[in-house]
Design a protein around this nucleic acid. Sequence first.
DNA 1: GTAAAATAGTTTATAATATAAACAAATTTA
DNA 2: TAAATTTGTTTATATTATAAACTATTTTAC
Lengths: 94, 94
Amino acid sequence: MLKELDPLLHSQLRLGIMSLLMSVDSAEFTFLKEKTNSTAGNLSVQLDKLSEAGYITVEKSFKGKKPLTTCMITKQGLKAFEDYVNALKGYIGT
Amino acid sequence: MLKELDPLLHSQLRLGIMSLLMSVDSAEFTFLKEKTNSTAGNLSVQLDKLSEAGYITVEKSFKGKKPLTTCMITKQGLKAFEDYVNALKGYIGT
DNA sequence: GTAAAATAGTTTATAATATAAACAAATTTA
DNA sequence: TAAATTTGTTTATATTATAAACTATTTTAC
């Protein structure tokens, strides 16, 4: 039977964010914005949601005098991502 | 760069429908309803959308005296599904 | 035979979501 | 010093998924 797909991850932008965070130690807001080709507003909202779910950490600091937002995937986020991928495989074969 | 995910397929229920239709010649409404664990209303709406997009055909007839809705994936739907899966692989590895 | 429940859906209303537009606050450039 | 750029956040809107309500027929139970 087809499993539930975690709705927090089953969203193009949030999945993109998580996918990118899987492959790096940490990523800056601007990096994620470029790679996902999203608007800043949308990215900001989705980072908040992932952060509130405990899937990522979002740290705000400064690079010189400009704000700097740094994101990292959490253990819980990694687990959720893997579970999501496994559930998805039930849908797409592979 | 991460590719766009066809929004018509990037939906749990519609993806489930398409996934099931990939593996059979044709499927009845009730079969899809059971396998996807969806409500009839939701299923009806999503079948319409897939049908309008040309991803599936929906044929209405009668089994004895009860209505019978039979669904099949189209060539275009198959292509869209494959494209979607390939795009998705950019997100989930594999 | 007829009232109640089941089957097989559709249509409509609602709640959730994604997304963009508008805004803010500082910094850099011309 | 005015205009543009950077780095975001907040708010509004449009889309979407979903369920609730409804329809029409058929089967079952009394």
